[in-house]
């Protein structure tokens, strides 16, 4: 198990390889469909994303009577929908990684290589295990997109992920897809 701590360094991220199990401690920003489209259209980010990690997640967030937010469920959403935009967000905003599920395609893989970023896979559906690792909600941006689509700034402690795409061109998703297609040929 590798520990990755905030502030994140690109050198450390470059060392990560497909199959590494990583515990992230520090800061994450959620960002999913609406945010990626918004950034892709050239709007400035309401928060500096340089050397940050974007988490493809639409959490369940509760607000108490004092106005304090708590995340009560926060698993990853399917990342492939951000495939048209992710490379550009990596290039223009300098993020060091994204967390999601299901993996991403060749454009993102190429951007990971070019800009020094990785794709972390969180366990889909594990909204409680992952919400437990969120220690505080530190901010919210673009709330007008609706709660699941907003950017939530989260502090996390030992957030469990697996590297499935690294900055050296490695992709577990590509490997598994090719192997399973080959297996299928012999099974039909």
């Amino acid at each position: 198990m590798i520990e990755l701590k905030y502030p994140f360094s690109r050198d450390e991220v470059r060392k990560l390889k497909v199959g590494d199990m990583v515990l992230i401690t520090g800061k994450l920003f959620t960002g999913r469909d609406a945010v990626h489209k918004y950034l892709h259209e050239g709007h400035p980010s309401p928060v500096n994303l340089k050397d940050q990690i974007i988490y493809h997640c639409g959490p369940v967030v509760m607000k108490d009577k004092h106005g304090k937010y708590t995340v009560t469920a926060a698993g990853p959403t399917t990342s492939i929908r951000e495939e048209p935009y992710q490379w550009q967000v990596m290039r223009d905003h300098g993020i060091v990684g994204v967390i999601g599920k299901g993996g991403m395609g060749p454009k993102t893989l190429e951007a990971c290589k070019q800009y020094g970023a990785v794709y972390f896979h969180a366990i889909g559906g594990a909204a409680q295990v992952l919400a437990e690792r969120i220690t505080s909600v530190d901010g919210v941006y673009l709330e007008e997109f609706g709660s699941p689509e907003a950017i939530w700034e989260l502090s996390v402690d030992k957030f469990p992920v697996v590297v499935t795409m690294d900055s050296h061109g490695g992709s577990l998703h590509k490997e598994v897809e090719e192997a399973s297609k080959e297996n299928l040929k012999h099974l039909v």
Binding site: V60, A73, T77, A127
Partner: peptide, 15 residues
Amino acid sequence: NIGLAKTKSQPLCQD
């Protein structure tokens, strides 16, 4: 996650 969701009475998955 299955155990935790039940104990905390919170959604298994955020979606």
